[in-house]
Each structure stands twice: as structure tokens, then as C-alpha cells.
Amino acid sequence: MPIHNVGVLVETDASWGRNVLRGVASYAEKFGPWNLLVETHHSFINWAVPATWRVDGLIARISTPLHLQRLQSLKVPIVDVGDLFLGAEGIDSVVTDFDTWADMAMEHFRSKGFVNFAYYAPPSRDYSNLRGEAFAAAVEQLGLVCHRYRPGYRIGREISPDEHRRRVTRWLRQLPQPVAVLAADALRGKDLAEVCGQAGLTVPDEIAVLAGDSDELTCEICMPPLSSIEVASRRIGYEAAARLAGHLARGSSPSGCLRVEPDRVLSRQSTDVMAIDDPLVVRALRFMRLNAYRGITVLDVLQEVPVARRQLERQFKRYLGRLPAEELRRLRLERARQLLTETELSMDEVAEASGYAGSTQLGSAFRKAFQLTPLSYRRRAQLD
């Protein structure tokens, strides 16, 4: 069996690119052998395949039209792991499912009681408009408004740091508050939190910030630490390698796109707030978040909060868009997903720690919510 030379062109200055590379390497180790040729980049203006490479196929994050043209001229199978050139001729793609990404962000924000939403993404070659469009659609589906940052200049134009800060500050001060802001990625989330600090706007009380991906270092050194969406970048790399292997076996380079769902929202201090002006709802939510994993029911919540069940249900619908029983179920399932991802607990132990009577009950609720079994979810998460 021939050993294929596979080139990988992804930036590795953040967790996203490093995990894509890990996913590619994992596939090559299992189903190779492949000779991986890796060229990491931090600037995308003049990306090209090194002259010394003789590649049979490529996995890349294509960032400019010139980059796309140069890669297409090689006449080898290519899988793009970026979202700027979906549908380009002869280019296959594996990207984040941004509809699910946006729904996760909205679910997280709504669980905090937010009714004001915004999207922050300065012009960049790092991402397309698909992210903002998906989030705006998720917001507008609820009959609400998504405020988008529109600085009025195109990709490639340079403005000074002071001018950038003035533009972002002016935009932030025009937003209704408190407001939940989804940033395109961790770098932009940190940027936004820093502008808020300089402008005297408090995070998360006035501006709650959620980063669109999880670069661990960037999120942890931010002040306050950034909540983030854990996109499945290692699985993206693995699936990109699997699709490239298929093209190499068939000798073809068809256009197509595989969308990979993100894993979860990792909550940190930048969204640790309740944007709810009803003290009874806040009290109920705090009780639920402390005790959901002990198997409590709505009746237990009503014993803690002196309010009629119908009134509590109306207020939950108003602020969160779901009933108290649905919020309890959401909390338990999120706990189960965390344990399946981060521990080696048995299914019975995961069920007990999540507030379920046993693995059968957990499995039924999990399949209904996510269309896969807890075991399948754990196996998929291991790719990440």
C-alpha cells in the first residue's frame, strides 16, 4: 500500500488549529500510514505550499482568494477546514455546524434570562459571515433583535488601536443593557472584554460575553475569564482526514461539506450573571442549579419558592423560554454531557451524579434530546 504525502496547512497559535492537527494525526495513526507534512502559519497573506513538498492531498484552512487559487492549481484532493470558501470548485469542506453553534449560544444566554443580544465580529480573514448570520437567525426566530457590530470598513484595512477602541465603545454604549454578546471567537471575545474594561462597562453585569470557540489560554487569562463554545476542532481534523482518505482512494476531488456539531458551552465568569428582574425566578433558578442533580422535582422548587405553580411557569416562559421542568431536564443533561466527556464514570454512575434514577432513564432522556446514546456521545467526544 502506498504511503501518501499529506500536507496540513493550519495555524497553530491557538487551540483550534492545534486540535485540528491532532485530529488529522489521530486518523493517520489509525488508518495510515501517511507522511504528514505540516506547515504552521500565523499570517495568511501569502500562504502557499512549500516548494519542497510533493503532496498527494491537502488539509488546509483557506483564508484568501489567492490562497484558494494557489491550492486549486495543484490539482490534488483538498479538504478545507475553514468557512470562507464553502462550495469552491474542487474543494471539500469540514466545518462547524453554525446553526447548532448559534442555538447553543442562545440556550446559554436564555438560561441567564437575557432578552437583549448582540454579535461582535470585526472584519477578518479568520471567519465568514456565516457565524453572525446563524446567530442573528436564532435570535430573530424568537422575535427578538440581534445587534451586530458594523464598523464600516472592509477586511484588510488597518485602523489604530485607539480608533478601534472608540468604534467598539460607541457601539457598546448604544446597546440596550444588560446585553448578551456572542463574539466570533476567543480572540475577539478577549478584545471585547478589554474594551469594556477601558470604557467602564462591567462584564458580565452590563455586557455578558461568550466566545465563539475555546482557546484555553485566551479564555483563562481574560479578565474576567471568558465563557466559550467548545467547537469540536479535533473531530473536524479527524473527519477532514477521513474525507481526504476517501478522495485519495477514489482519485477524485468533489466539492461538498460536512458540518460538525460543537460539543458544549463552557461557562466561566464572563456570563455568570442573572439578567432577570424577578427575585422569585432568580431564587428558583439558584435552587435548581444547586440541587438539580439530587433528583428534585418542580414540587421541591415550589416548596423553596413561595409562588403558585402556574405563576412560576409563566415567569419561566417569559424569561427563559421554557418551563421549570424543562430547565431541570436541561441542567441534568448538561451535567451528564460534562461527565461523559471529562470522566471515565460508568453509565450508572453518570446517571446517579446527574440526578437520574439509573442508566436506562438517562439513556432515554439523552436519546430524546441529542438523538444519540450516552455511550455514542462519549465515544464521539473521545475524538476531541
Results as ranks from 00 to 15, higher is better:
residue 334 E to Y: 06
residue 211 A to H: 01
residue 338 Q to K: 13
residue 105 A to G: 04
residue 292 A to N: 03
residue 382 Q to H: 14
residue 212 G to A: 11
residue 311 Q to N: 13
residue 298 V to H: 08
residue 23 G to F: 01
residue 182 L to C: 04
residue 320 L to G: 04
residue 331 L to D: 02
residue 177 Q to W: 08
residue 42 H to F: 13
residue 328 L to M: 07
residue 51 A to L: 07
residue 347 M to W: 11
residue 289 R to M: 11
residue 52 T to F: 02
residue 103 D to R: 13
residue 114 F to I: 02
residue 103 D to V: 09
residue 354 S to R: 09
residue 268 R to G: 03
residue 255 S to F: 01
residue 72 Q to E: 14
residue 146 C to N: 09
residue 143 G to A: 06
residue 213 D to Y: 06
residue 296 I to S: 09
residue 258 L to P: 03
residue 226 L to E: 06
residue 382 Q to C: 09
residue 249 A to P: 00
residue 206 E to M: 07
residue 29 E to L: 14
residue 81 V to H: 05
residue 269 Q to K: 15
residue 71 L to E: 08
residue 66 L to Y: 02
residue 167 R to L: 12
residue 263 D to C: 00
residue 44 F to V: 14
residue 108 H to D: 05
residue 376 S to N: 09
residue 98 F to L: 12
residue 108 H to N: 10
residue 72 Q to P: 05
residue 187 L to Y: 14
residue 89 E to A: 13
residue 191 D to G: 05
residue 221 I to Q: 05
residue 127 Y to E: 06
residue 57 G to K: 14
residue 173 R to D: 04
residue 125 R to N: 10
residue 383 L to E: 02
residue 248 L to C: 07
residue 367 R to G: 04
residue 107 E to N: 12
residue 74 L to H: 11
residue 360 T to N: 12
residue 112 K to P: 06
residue 37 L to I: 02
residue 243 R to W: 02
residue 44 F to S: 12
residue 101 W to D: 02
residue 285 L to F: 08
residue 290 L to T: 15
residue 101 W to F: 15
residue 195 V to Y: 06
residue 380 R to C: 04
residue 284 A to R: 10
residue 104 M to K: 08
residue 304 E to Q: 13
residue 52 T to E: 12
residue 47 W to H: 14
residue 137 A to C: 08
residue 1 M to C: 09
residue 84 L to Y: 00
residue 44 F to I: 06
residue 73 S to D: 11
residue 110 R to K: 12
residue 288 M to R: 05
residue 251 G to H: 10
residue 188 R to F: 13
residue 229 I to N: 04
residue 153 Y to M: 06
residue 344 E to F: 05
residue 51 A to S: 14
